[in-house]
């Protein structure tokens, strides 16, 4: 079974037509890969479906806007993979995602 990062990278490559080999765990979705908010909607849909979760994009955006979090925490792909793993674990624990 592929890692969460691999799954995300494959989704991004397919959704945004970005060569898969240029997508690294250290890549920042916005700053490095140039993904805009519209493409990210598409990516979020694919990730939500693939992992059976609902990524709290609005909450994350609010935290960044309020200075309580950095974009790196959510949009560097290895960190995004960690957030997704947390959401999946929370869902599997029955605590809601």
């Amino acid at each position: 079974m592929s890692s969460t990062f691999d799954q995300i990278a494959n989704i991004i490559a397919e959704t945004c037509d970005i060569p898969r080999d240029t997508i690294k765990p250290e890549s920042h979705a916005i700053d490095d890969l140039g993904i805009d908010s519209l493409d990210f909607l598409d990516i979020a849909f694919a990730i939500d479906k693939a992992f059976g979760i609902k990524m709290p994009l609005e909450k994350w955006t609010q935290e960044v806007n309020d200075g309580k979090a950095t974009t790196e925490q959510y949009f560097v792909l290895k960190n995004l993979a960690d957030r997704i793993d947390e959401l999946v674990a929370a869902k599997n624990a029955g605590t809601g995602a």
Binding site: L41, D48, K54, T61
Partner: peptide, 9 residues
């Protein structure tokens, strides 16, 4: 089809 955070399909 899907209701996400700030979007729906």
């Amino acid at each position: 089809e899907h209701e996400g955070s700030g979007f729906a399909v």
